[in-house]
Amino acid sequence: MKNTFAGHGRGYLEGPPRQVPGFASLHRMVEMLLAERVPEDGRALILGAGGGMELKALADAQPGWTFDGVDPSANMLELAAETVRPHTDRVRLHHGGIEAAPRGPFDGATCLLVFHFIEITERARILAGLRQRLRPGAPLVLMHISFPQAEPERSQWIARHAAYGAPPGTDPAHLAAAREAIGMRLTILSPDEEEAMLAEAGFERTSLFFAGLSFRGWVCYRG
């Protein structure tokens, strides 16, 4: 997995609440969707666990669950270890990509705010690895940037994304640079393309549970 998650160290914890519409409710929604299938003593895989915010929120809400968190950034895993300190006995952290994750089987998995940093061929490999580690019927919850890729819609959505995350009064030149970076550095698919990839990887009953400006969230199940 690419070692390019947004933000580094403590500054990362400040980024998502500012950049992601609806972030304050995201972890509650994810926990509800997982809990529909994950038993009280279930085991969950958190792919892209750096920072530990998601791990802590899920561990706070589900005292019987155990977690394996995976991230390619050693620095981010150090921050995650701090964040989840109250739940150390139920959380194991692993440095690397999907290949570093235990074989499972897991009762559920998440991959939040990650896939727009991952190239398409690598996404397919990651989805295959997730499927192999999940029990049949187990939920996978994803959320990342996704919007139409035909012009002029693509450029308009990139501009909206850059503007939302920028502080008030940002220099227009900085916004222009941000738009260019988003267009060049991120791998963004349309919602239809996202759902097609999930189906091709062997996930079923994909449903959209979140749509906030440039972000989309789905829940699907291992077939």
Rank of each mutant, 00 (worst) to 15 (best):
M143T: 14
S25V: 07
A173S: 14
P172V: 12
L93E: 04
E193Y: 01
G52S: 03
F115L: 15
P72N: 06
M197T: 05
A178F: 07
Y12A: 14
S207H: 09
F106V: 09
F115G: 08
P39I: 09
D71Q: 05
I118P: 05
G108D: 03
E14K: 13
G165F: 04
E82C: 04
E119M: 07
P16Y: 09
G202M: 04
G183A: 02
A100N: 11
F203M: 07
H116V: 08
C111N: 13
R135H: 13
F23H: 15
S190W: 02
G9W: 10
W65R: 07
D107Y: 02
R103W: 03
A162S: 09
P86C: 10
L112C: 11
F5Q: 11
E194W: 04
R123N: 11
C111F: 03
V38T: 05
R10N: 09
R123Y: 11
G129Q: 10
P72E: 03
V30C: 05
G137A: 11
A74K: 10
T110C: 09
Q132V: 12
E153H: 14
T66Y: 02
A81T: 04
A24F: 06
D71G: 05
G104Q: 12
A80S: 05
R90E: 10
L140A: 09
M197N: 07
I126F: 10
A44G: 01
R131S: 12
G217K: 04
C220P: 02
I145M: 14
A201C: 02
F106A: 05
I98S: 03
L175H: 07
E151A: 12
F210A: 01
V91W: 04
G137Q: 09
E204F: 04
A6N: 11
A163Y: 06
M184R: 15
F23I: 13
E82G: 05
L112S: 08
F203V: 01
L130D: 10
W218P: 01
P191L: 03
P102M: 13
V114N: 11
L175Q: 07
C220R: 00
R160N: 11
M197P: 00
L127K: 04
L77C: 03
L79F: 03
G42K: 10
L112M: 14
T66A: 06
R103I: 11
R216M: 06
A196N: 05
N75V: 08
A199L: 03
M32E: 15
S214K: 00
M29H: 13
G97S: 13
R133S: 09
F67L: 06
L198W: 01
P72S: 07
G183W: 07
D41N: 14
E180H: 11
G108C: 06
P86A: 09
E122F: 04
R90Q: 07
L93K: 08
L33G: 04
A177F: 09
P39C: 08
A81K: 11
